[in-house]
Design a protein around this nucleic acid. Sequence first.
DNA 1: ACTTGGCACTCGGGAACACAGAGTGCTAGA
DNA 2: TCTAGCACTCTGTGTTCCCGAGTGCCAAGT
Lengths: 337, 337
Amino acid sequence: MLDDRKLAVLRAIVEDYVSTNEPVGSKALAERHNLKVSPATVRNDMAALEEEGYITQPHTSAGRVPTDKGYRLFVDRLSQVKPLSSAERRAIETFLAGAVDLDDVVTRTVRLLAQLTRQVAVVQYPTLTRSTVRHVELVPLNDRRVMLVLITNTGRVEQRVVELPEAVEDARVAHLRAVLNACLDGCGLTSVPDLVADLPERLAPEDRPAAVTILSVLLETLVERHDEKIVFAGAANLAGADFSVGLRDVLEALEEQVVLMRLLGETSTDTPSALTVRIGSENPYLRGTSVVATGYGSGDNQLARLGVLGPTRMDYPVTMGAVRAVARYVSQILAAS
Amino acid sequence: MLDDRKLAVLRAIVEDYVSTNEPVGSKALAERHNLKVSPATVRNDMAALEEEGYITQPHTSAGRVPTDKGYRLFVDRLSQVKPLSSAERRAIETFLAGAVDLDDVVTRTVRLLAQLTRQVAVVQYPTLTRSTVRHVELVPLNDRRVMLVLITNTGRVEQRVVELPEAVEDARVAHLRAVLNACLDGCGLTSVPDLVADLPERLAPEDRPAAVTILSVLLETLVERHDEKIVFAGAANLAGADFSVGLRDVLEALEEQVVLMRLLGETSTDTPSALTVRIGSENPYLRGTSVVATGYGSGDNQLARLGVLGPTRMDYPVTMGAVRAVARYVSQILAAS
DNA sequence: ACTTGGCACTCGGGAACACAGAGTGCTAGA
DNA sequence: TCTAGCACTCTGTGTTCCCGAGTGCCAAGT
């Protein structure tokens, strides 16, 4: 049904439309890409492609524009991820290398990705799931209040103020801290609930109320912050682009963690570093936009996702190349720290 | 030069223009606000106001629109800050009360303010300047690397990974930690540099290289993070509004910490809780936008600034009321924690 | 001295219209 | 199966025209 030439025509249409933002006609197509056939022949092929739903025409007498299905075929079979220039690679490396802590790594990454792709970049903070407890700190603020600080081996720090049910002396707080650390140090975060389950019973009765309160906050922290936090950058790049959905909707989605989470999607468990591309209406949460995302993290320790969001009419090969490259570099940085 | 009626006309023009977004003519004006004078009289007043530069007309035959100078007069002399409804107050209180830590307070505040004003809200993190050291923690990551965690009485936590010049045993790290805490606990952050200046000399020679490295990172953290971090929310509210400056420029400014910092402006030292209003061209960094901001923080402890950014054509009384109310509530929350 | 009604003037924006140009589909011929 | 030619259909643009809102000014009224 679709011979090689028809595919070549589709590819040419996508490329031209992406670069010019104007419906592409048979004549211009036959000229610019040396297809060695006449415009009339191209027209026939276009008619066939339209019949199959890969392209469409905005009005009766205009050129053709790819449909979501057309972009899909283009991404799957007609294009290959474009690697970055060596200058870009170096820029990435030096830019990311200057990061001082996890926050900084994430901030730099999201900005870098936005600048590189000229789209909106979205980065999820590395999940706690696979990380392990490095240290638990309890700092007395006053006799009814302590600050709980949880430090993980990925460099992440979570803090919470805990209101105690009764006054507790500093010495007993220190004792609790020692017990907690003895119990949890080096353990995976996912196993924390099991490990602390019977902890109160092993304590002196007078320590139990405080311990229970603190532990419940600790568990809450683990659950609530669990792969919740997502940041974005490059909203300014939305100014030029036109989405079929309103600009307002896109901006609203960007500020909703939950929506962003869904946009980035799930990491496929078997091939975590594979690029996910969702095109236009394939994307159930924000039609009219495309998302290119991938998992990142060190080694077999898949931690989180990052990607970019842009209009359906985007340069997929370049965007995919940038996303893949950034994901690799940031994984590398994380592994080293 | 400007009698009471002319001022009333100016006020009416501002109010009408803000609510309708259309140049307001003499006839509609005389009708809607019962000025008890004829349109012709109003026209004369308008001519005078235009002469003085308070209003202008987009085209020869259109109504009048306030100039920046007109808005300025309106804000300074013709309007009064509109208090929030009691329902809004309750909403603020309950929304802010649920915050679990400083991060959460700031995030909730900025979202609340955006929603309340339907503008872009901007909140600066409370400065470290006036806070005191609650605890310093050193966590060995491996023998050449420790994590430095600084906890302040405002609930803020700063962390940094420190690369040591030589391998250091855990016991010596613990010793350093004890020394640091003994030296710094409860001290104001601004006095930290003085307090640690001669610290290395008081240590055993073999501890000095590590101590120097750690201290330099500590000082760096204090300087760099010093009132740097600013967050915003409500970018979606930009979608409808029209600025004389491009939407792109506004979005770019929002992602530039430095620009945001300047937009929020300085807190006047004598009356820190005063509302700052910068209108249109008064604002040197982003013409065509207005900023309503104020300082916030507990008691005499002025900590940081918050505010909103919107088009020059905004409802100043309402916006100012919301900014003032939110600043008060968040100050209250911070004082209590 | 201010206010008011009347009046001529200006200009923006919408409707109606024509037109050129790009692009298409179809058909007949190579 | 490809190509050339041709008639057709649109959109976008430029032009013209006209309506109406709004103004400024002047002369009369209070």
